[in-house]
Amino acid sequence: MPALEAVDDRLQQAMKLVLLATLPGVLAAFWLYGWGVLINLVLATTATLAIEAAVVQWRKRPLRPTLSDGSALVSATLLALALPPYCPWWLTLSAAAFAMIFGKHLYGGVGSNPFNPAMLGFALVLVTFPQSMTHWPSSHGMDLLSGLQQVFGVGQAPDAWVQATALDSLRINKSLTMDELFASNPAFGHYGGRGVEWMNLAFLAGGMFLLQRRVISWHAPVGMLASLFIISLLCWNGSGSDSHGSPLFHLLTGATMLGAFFIITEPVSGARSPRAKLLFGVGVGLLTYFIRTWGGYPDGIAFAVLSMNLCVPALERFVAARQQPEVP
C-alpha cells in the first residue's frame, strides 16, 4: 500500500509539472487565437473530469485517487490545444468522451492504455468532422462574448474569421513559389506559420523545463525533431512551387513542438527503454513528414503518434534482442 501511494504521488507530481510546462504555449496560443483557446480548455477539462468520474463510479473504483492524479487534466489540456479554437462545443465533448472512454478506461485506466488518449480523441473528430476541424481563426480571434456565441452556435460569426493554415496552404499549392507564399499568404510568417512560430518556441521552452526537471528524457523528442529535420532537408528542393517546405518550416509550423515534448513523451502509450524511445521518436518524425507532404491531412502528428503506438511492443522486443549478449 505505501508503494502504491508513492507511485501515485510521483505521477501526480509529474502531471503538475507537465501542466506547468504547457503554460508558455497556452499563453502564446491565447495571444495568437484569443478566447477560443481558453474556452476549449474549460470545455475539455470539464468534460474530461465529468466523464472520468462517471466511468470510475460505473466501474466501482475509488473516485478521488483517479481524479487527483492529474492524468485526465493533462489529456484535456493536450486535446484542447490540438483542437481549433472556437470549434463547436459538441466537437470538444465528443473528442473528450472518446479519449476517456475508448482511449483510457476501455483498457483499464491510467497505466494500461496502448494509445495516447488525447490523440485518439483528436483523430476521431478529425476523421468524423473534417470540415469543422479546418476552421482556424485568421487573426487574434474574437472577444469573449462573440467567442462563446460561436462555440455554442447562438450567434453569427464575423466574415472571413477563418483561413487555411500554413501547412494546408502549402499542401494544396500548385503554382506559387515558397517566396511568393510567404510574401502573399497571411498564414505564413517569417519561417513557418504566422504566430505559430512563437507558439512552437513556447512549447519548446516548456519542453526544456521538463527535460531540466527530468520529467521526460531527451530520446523521443530528439528522435522526432532530428528525423523530421533530416527528411525535410533531404526532400527540400528550394523555393519552387513544388517545394514541400524547409526543415525550419516543418519544425516551427503545426503542432511540432507540442508533439515532440508533450505528446510522444506520454509514458504509458510510448516506448519505455531509451533506445526504443529514440526509435519511437524517429518513426513519429518520419510519419509526420510523410502525412504532411503526401497524406490527406495537413499536420499528421496525431496519426503518426497513434501508428507508432502500435509499434511500441515490436520496438521494445527489437531493442531487447539487440542488447542481449551473444552466446559463444
Rank of each mutant, 00 (worst) to 15 (best):
L4P: 01
Y107A: 09
N173W: 03
V55D: 01
T66Y: 01
G141A: 06
S138R: 09
G223E: 10
G34H: 01
A255F: 09
P114C: 09
D143L: 08
M142P: 00
A95W: 00
L120F: 15
G240M: 06
P137W: 10
T66C: 03
L201H: 03
I264C: 08
S227W: 01
I230W: 06
V37M: 02
G270S: 14
S184L: 08
V162R: 01
G195V: 05
F249Q: 02
G34F: 02
A183P: 02
S239V: 09
A320S: 12
A123V: 09
M199T: 14
L279T: 11
H140W: 04
M308V: 07
Q156K: 11
V327F: 13
S239H: 15
D159P: 05
F152P: 00
Q212L: 12
G192K: 00
S139H: 12
W89M: 08
V327P: 00
D9I: 04
I301L: 15
L73V: 07
L210V: 08
A205I: 13
G259K: 07
G70P: 02
G108V: 07
V7L: 15
F129W: 15
A99F: 05
Q324I: 04
L225T: 06
V127N: 06
W31H: 14
Q12K: 12
N237Q: 14
V327R: 12
D242I: 01
F188I: 07
Q131V: 14
C311I: 12
A29F: 04
T265H: 10
A29N: 13
V312F: 03
E326C: 11
Q149K: 12
M199V: 15
F182G: 00
G147K: 00
H105T: 06
L11A: 11
W35K: 00
M199C: 12
L148R: 04
H140Q: 13
R171V: 07
A29R: 00
P85H: 11
G103I: 10
G240P: 04
A80N: 06
L286A: 09
V268M: 02
F261K: 01
V327T: 14
C87N: 02
V42C: 09
W236C: 07
E52G: 02
L310A: 13
L23T: 14
P298N: 07
I230L: 15
Y33F: 15
L211I: 07
V110M: 13
G296D: 13
V327M: 08
H219E: 15
V282C: 14
G111D: 08
A54V: 11
Q12G: 10
V125K: 00
V284Y: 04
L83C: 04
A255I: 09
A53H: 00
